[in-house]
Design a protein around this nucleic acid. Structure first.
Length: 664
RNA sequence: GGGCGAGUAGCUCAAUCGGAUAGAGCACCGGCCUUCUAAGCCGGGGGUUGUGGGUUCAAAUCCCGCCUCGCCCA
C-alpha cells in the first residue's frame, strides 16, 4: 500500500514537472521525513531542479506544491526545510484501503536460482548455512513477488552437486587408502553406519581432514600420495570403475544428509544437477564446439600457455599480435583436460537453454509437503518437470568465487549471448568465519597471530568449523530450556516444536541480518542470543499480538472488519494519533520492502524491517492497554492496529522462512 | 604485482546508490512485573564516519592520494 501510493505520487509529479517546467526526471527519489508528524513521503526534487531552472529550491518547491493541487489519497503537500516537499497521506481512508486484500496476478516466466551447492564429502557447516538461508530467502521473496501484486518471476531452485570433484576424491582416497576398503568394504561400512545411526557426513568430516594431513605427511611419500589423489580424481571423472562407484555411493548418501539438514530449516530444492552427468552426457564437447564456432576460444601457439585453448579475460589487453596473452584464461590444458571454468561454461549454456543438450531426470526425494526433488541422471524417467531454459539466473556463491563467475559471464558475452550475460546474477556474499574465542571454545589451538584477528576462516580441509546440525541442536537445546521453564504444563513434544521454531527463527535471522558483503564472525554467544535484534524478538511480538486476540476472544480478521465500519480519522490525529499512524505506515511498507529486497538482492533489508516493525509493535503494546480500553471505537482501532502489525510481521517473517510459534 | 571488498559508538552492525539532528542491538548505569507474557518497555552516557585533499546548496556515501585489514588471481 505504501508502494501503491508512492507510485501514484510519481505519476502525478511527473505530469506536473512535464507541464510546468517541461522537464523529465528519469529517476525520482523519494525519502521519508525524519518525523511522522512532518508527513509520509519527502521529495527532494526541488534541490535537483535548482541548478537547471536557476531558481531557489524553496521557490520551486512552492510552485510544485501549488501545481500538484490535490492527489487522491493525499491530504496535502507542504514545503519544509530548504526545499523539501513533504506529502501527507489521508490516514483514515488509506488505513481502510490497507485492510483490504490484494489481488493476484498469474506468474510469467521463471528464474533459475541455485544455492547451497555443498561438496558432498562432509557435513554442512555454518558457511553453507549462510548460503542456503540467503538463497532460500531470495526464493521465498521471488515466489511471493511472482504470485501477488509484484511481477517477479517465480524461482526454480537448484542445488548443484560436484560429485566428481577433488573433494569427493579426497574422501574416496581416505576410504580406500587410509581405511583400506574396497567397494564391498565400503558397502559394509555404510551399512554399519546406518545400523548404529552414525552420520556419514560427520564421519567423513573427520576423514577428509585426516586425508588432507596424510597428503602432507612424509616427505618421501608426498609425491606418490598426490599422484594417488590425481589418479582417483581422474577415475571419478571417467566413471564406470570401482572408485567412481564408491564415490557415487558415498556422495549420494551425504547429499541425502545435506537435504535433511536443510529440511530442518525449511529449505527445499527442485533439482540437483550433478557434475557426473555434465561429464558423461558430454556437455563440454557441445560447449567446446559452440565456443570455437563463436570464436571466443583460440589455441595459443607460444608462451607459457602454448598448446592450450584459452579465452581472453575481462579487462585485459589481450594478445597484441607479437606477444601471447599471458593473462588469458586457460579453458583446455595442453594435455587436453578441461578446466573447471570450461565445465562451468557448458553448464551455464545449459541453464540458458543454449547448449542443445539436456540432463536425464529422476525422482530423488519427496518432501513432507508433497514437493518433489529431482536429480540428474544419464537416462531419466518420463515424464519429468522441465529445467534449464531459464531467462534469468541467480547463483548464490560466496565472493571468493567472483573471478570464476565473471569468466563464465565473459564467455557468454564473447559468444554473443548478451541478454543471457546481463541476466546472469552472481548473488555474492562474504564468508562466515569464526571469532578466535569461538575457535578456542571448539577446542582448536589458535596461533598468537590469529588470536589478535577479528576472525579466522573456517577450513574443511583442517576439519575446522561449526557443523550446521550441531549448531541447530545447540539452538534448540537453548530454546528448550526457556520453553520448559515458561510452559511446564505443555507436553514434551509441544515444547520441542516451539523450541525448534525459535531456534530456526534465531538462526535464519542471524544469517540474514548482516548485509551480504559483511564477513560474519561467528560466535555462539551472538548466534544463541534470543534478545534484542534477533529472530525470537520478532516472533515474540507476533505471539503477544496473538495473546491479545485470544484474550479478547476475537480473530484478527474480525478486528479488521470491525475497523472498516469506524471513522478512524479522529484516532490518527494528535500526538497519540501520530504514533499510532507510524505503526500503520511502517506495516504498510512490507511489499515495498519486498520489492527493494528482490531488486537489490539484499535480504538484510527484510530482516531490519521485521525487527523495526516488531520494535514499534512492542512499543505500541506497552503504550496502549487494549483489553481495558473503555471507548469501544478506540478499542476497535487499537485491535485493528495490532491485527495489521501482526499480519505484516508474520508475512515479513514468512518471507525469511521464519514462523512464530503459538506461544513463547 | 593486478582485481574485488571492507575501515562508522567500548563490541557487533545499519544508514532507502548525495539529503533534514549519522541510527540499532550488545555491554554499562538508572527506572518499570497485582492490568493483553519482563525473550519486553522507558530513560542515560558514549561519534572529528581510518587519514589528507577535491567536487556542491548538501558527503559516511562521489573523485584523487595515503594507511590498515580480508579475499581472489598471477
Amino acid at each position: 500500500m505504501y508502494r501503491t501510493y508512492r507510485q501514484s505520487l510519481f505519476v502525478h509529479l511527473r505530469a506536473v514537472l512535464q507541464e510546468k517546467f517541461q522537464v523529465e526526471i528519469a529517476r525520482l527519489t523519494v525519502e521519508e521525513p525524519p518525523k511522522v508528524e512532518m508527513g509520509d513521503y519527502a521529495l527532494p526534487i526541488a534541490f535537483e531542479l535548482a541548478r537547471t531552472l536557476r531558481k531557489a529550491p524553496r521557490k520551486i518547491a512552492e510552485e510544485l506544491v501549488a501545481a500538484l493541487g490535490s492527489v487522491p489519497g493525499f491530504t496535502g503537500f507542504e514545503v519544509a526545510g530548504a526545499g523539501y516537499i513533504n506529502c501527507r497521506l489521508d490516514r483514515g481512508p488509506v488505513a481502510r484501503k490497507f485492510v483490504e486484500v490484494e489481488q493476484w496476478l498469474p506468474p510469467l516466466d521463471y528464474a533459475l536460482l541455485e544455492h547451497t551447492s555443498i561438496n558432498p564429502n562432509k557435513a554442512a557447516h555454518v558457511g553453507h548455512l549462510r548460503n542456503a538461508i540467503l538463497g532460500d530467502t531470495l526464493a521465498r521473496f521471488m515466489r511471493w513477488g511472482s504470485s501477488k501484486s509484484l511481477s517477479f518471476m517465480p524461482p526454480r531452485v537448484q542445488n548443484y552437486i560436484d560429485n566428481t570433484g577433488v573433494q569427493v576424491a579426497d574422501v574416496v582416497v581416505g576410504l580406500t587408502h587410509l581405511e583400506e576398503m574396497d567397494l564391498s568394504g565400503v558397502k559394509r561400512w555404510m551399512e554399519t553406519l546406518r545400523q548404529s545411526n552414525e552420520r556419514i557426513d560427520f564421519v567423513c568430516w573427520d576423514l577428509y581432514a585426516r586425508v588432507s594431513q596424510w597428503y602432507e605427511a612424509g616427505l618421501d611419500q608426498k609425491e606418490a600420495r598426490k599422484q594417488i589423489r590425481l589418479d582417483t580424481l581422474h577415475a571419478l571423472e571417467a566413471g564406470s570403475n570401482e572408485m567412481a562407484v564408491i564415490a557415487d555411493l558415498v556422495s549420494t548418501a551425504i547429499v541425502r544428509r545435506h537435504l535433511e539438514t536443510m529440511q530442518r530449516l525449511g529449505i527445499e530444492y527442485d533439482f540437483l544437477p550433478r557434475e557426473s552427468e555434465i561429464l558423461h552426457l558430454h556437455f563440454w564437447d557441445a560447449a567446446f564446439a559452440l565456443m570455437k564456432e563463436k570464436g571466443v576460444l583460440y589455441q595459443e601457439t607460444q608462451g607459457k600457455n602454448a598448446g592450450c585453448w584459452v579465452m581472453r579475460r575481462a579487462g585485459t589487453a589481450g594478445a597484441d599480435g607479437e606477444n601471447p596473452d599471458e593473462e588469458a584464461k586457460v579453458i583446455v590444458r595442453s594435455n587436453g583436460t578441461v578446466t573447471y571454468v570450461g565445465k562451468d561454461i557448458a553448464y551455464h549454456l545449459w541453464k540458458f537453454g543454449k547448449l542443445g543438450l539436456d540432463f536425464g531426470y529422476s525422482r530423488f526425494h519427496t518432501y513432507p509437503d508433497g514437493e518433489e526433488c529431482w536429480i540428474s541422471t544419464e537416462h531419466g524417467e518420463e515424464p519429468h518437470p522441465s529445467f534449464g531454459h531459464a531467462s534469468v539466473i541467480y547463483n548464490v556463491i560466496d565472493s571468493r568465487q567472483a573471478d570464476p563467475q565473471n569468466n563464465v559471464i565473459e564467455a557468454l558475452y564473447g559468444m554473443g549471448f548478451t541478454k543471457e550475460a546481463e541476466n546472469y546474477h552472481h548473488f555474492s556474499y562474504e564468508m562466515v568465519a569464526l571469532t578466535p574465542r569461538c575457535a578456542t571454545e571448539l577446542g582448536y589451538v589458535i596461533s598468537e597471530e590469529d588470536q589478535s584477528r577479528p576472525f579466522i576462516e573456517v577450513s574443511g580441509r583442517k576439519g575446522f568449523g561449526v557443523k550446521a546440525d550441531d549448531l541447530i541442536d545447540k539452538l534448540i537445546a537453548a530454546a528448550l530450556v526457556q520453553v520448559n521453564a515458561r510452559h511446564p504444563e505443555r507436553s514434551e513434544a509441544e515444547c520441542h516444536s516451539i523450541a525448534s521454531k525459535i531456534a530456526i527463527g534465531a538462526l535464519r535471522y542471524y544469517m540474514l541480518r548482516y548485509t551480504r558483503n559483511t564477513i560474519i564472525a561467528f560466535d555462539f554467544q551472538d548466534a544463541l542470543s534470543f534478545e534484542g535484534e534477533t529472530g525470537p524478538y520478532a516472533q515474540y511480538a507476533v505471539v503477544r499480538a496473538a495473546n491479545i486476540f485470544r484474550k479478547a476472544n476475537i480473530t484478527p480478521a474480525d478486528a479488521l472488519r470491525a475497523f472498516e465500519k469506524i471513522d478512524a480519522a479522529a484516532y490518527f490525529s494528535g500526538e497519540d494519533g501520530d504514533s499510532l499512524w507510524e505503526l500503520w505506515l511502517l506495516a504498510s511498507k512490507s511489499v515495498h520492502m519486498l520489492e527493494r529486497c528482490i531488486q537489490s538482492t539484499e535480504p538484510a533489508y527484510m530482516a531490519k524491517y521485521a525487527f523495526q516493525l516488531a520494535q514499534q509493535f512492542s512499543n505500541f503494546y506497552h503504550r496502549h492497554h487494549i483489553l481495558t480500553e473503555s471507548d469501544p471505537n478506540r478499542k476497535a482501532v487499537l485491535l485493528a492496529t495490532a491485527a495489521v502489525a501482526q499480519r505484516e510481521l508474520i508475512r515479513a517473517l514468512a518471507w525469511m522462512g521464519i514462523e512464530a510459534p503459538d506461544v513463547m
